[in-house]
């Protein structure tokens, strides 16, 4: 500290703060930065808070705001969760969602790694156009594909089976993962591959032993993103699956937990909470990869 000249430490301060906001006073910063930020955070997180506390409330407290303040759980109960786990097919839905997401992600990663490497590094004839058409494929939304896909799924005899989802989810996962991985492969220096080629390595060896180990962060980003997108998918699962035990969590919670006009809000919120937790947990471990994946996909 004492060794550094004063001027330099001021300069460092400017850069580390990424702006001129050290000119703001403490009070002014509170009003212009922290207060609006707190409002944003409150609004963005409130639905999750509300979901969580409704889950642990007794029916008495869910429908009566006057006796106890609605913003806290006074008589916590596991009744809603118990009902969800033992009186509905919720465990089946969780298992289906997990299975479909993992298999669809694995298929998509495999296909995407090969495709991204071919487009970015093999530079075969027309690779530029293939790259652009992959980008185009990412922009085709599921809501215009689900009707023809439904007729195909029916003809292939896959209706109401997990395979219907495992085979259709890659249509939005592969374009996304390929695009993301192309960006990562681009950042690996050509010289490494050239050295390996001179030493007699084949392209497959280069991909497996040099490029993939260096692209691990990209693989993690693509993998967790693909898993999250599959977990959250709704319209295909709603259209292609009809029997209760084959449904995924988003579809099951919506279609099976509402009987007639009676909404059991306690178990509905419990279903929403436990369907959100797996991706929220995965997210909490890999935040940086999510951000890198998202911004990478946008920037490329």
């Amino acid at each position: 500290m004492s060794k550094k000249p004063v001027v330099q430490s001021v300069e460092e301060k400017v850069y580390s703060e990424g702006g001129m906001d050290f000119l703001l006073t403490r009070q002014r910063k509170f009003v212009t930065v922290y207060l609006p930020l707190a409002v944003f955070t409150f609004i963005l997180l409130f639905p999750f808070y509300w979901m969580t506390i409704t889950t642990f409330k007794s029916n008495d407290d869910i429908y009566n705001y006057e006796k106890n303040s609605p913003f806290w759980v006074f008589n916590p109960t596991l009744h809603n969760i118990k009902k969800l786990l033992f009186e509905t097919s919720y465990p089946d839905w969780l298992w289906n969602t997990f299975l479909v997401s993992v298999v669809a992600t694995a298929i998509s990663l495999f296909a995407s790694v090969l495709a991204a490497y071919a487009i970015e590094r093999l530079r075969f004839k027309g690779s530029r156009w293939i790259g652009l058409s992959i980008y185009g494929a990412y922009l085709v939304p599921p809501s215009i594909l689900f009707i023809p896909l439904a007729t195909m799924v029916y003809k292939l005899g896959l209706f109401d089976s997990r395979w219907a989802l495992i085979l259709t989810y890659p249509t939005f996962l592969i374009p996304f993962c390929t695009w993301l991985l192309m960006g990562y492969f681009k950042s690996i220096p050509f010289e490494l591959e050239e050295c390996a080629l001179i030493d007699g390595a084949t392209r497959v060896q280069i991909l497996w032993k040099i490029v993939l180990p260096l692209a691990v962060p990209g693989l993690i980003s693509a993998g967790i993103f693909a898993f999250t997108l599959s977990w959250n998918e709704f319209i295909y699962a709603l259209t292609f699956i009809s029997s209760s035990e084959n449904k995924t969590v988003p579809v099951g919670v919506l279609t099976e937990l509402v009987d007639g006009d009676v909404y059991h809000w306690g178990s509905l919120m419990a279903g929403a909470l436990f369907g959100s937790l797996p991706v929220a947990l995965l997210y909490s471990f890999f935040v940086e990869y999510y951000v890198a994946g998202m911004t990478g996909a946008v920037k490329e």
Partner: peptide
């Protein structure tokens, strides 16, 4: 801006986008 707990803030703010839309829509 230079704020306290910057990466933590960034992490929790992304939550609505990560969680299945169907489930937050039910909320």
């Amino acid at each position: 801006q230079n704020i306290a707990l910057k990466s933590f803030m960034r992490a929790i703010i992304l939550l609505p986008w990560i969680v299945p839309t169907t489930l937050s829509a039910i909320a």
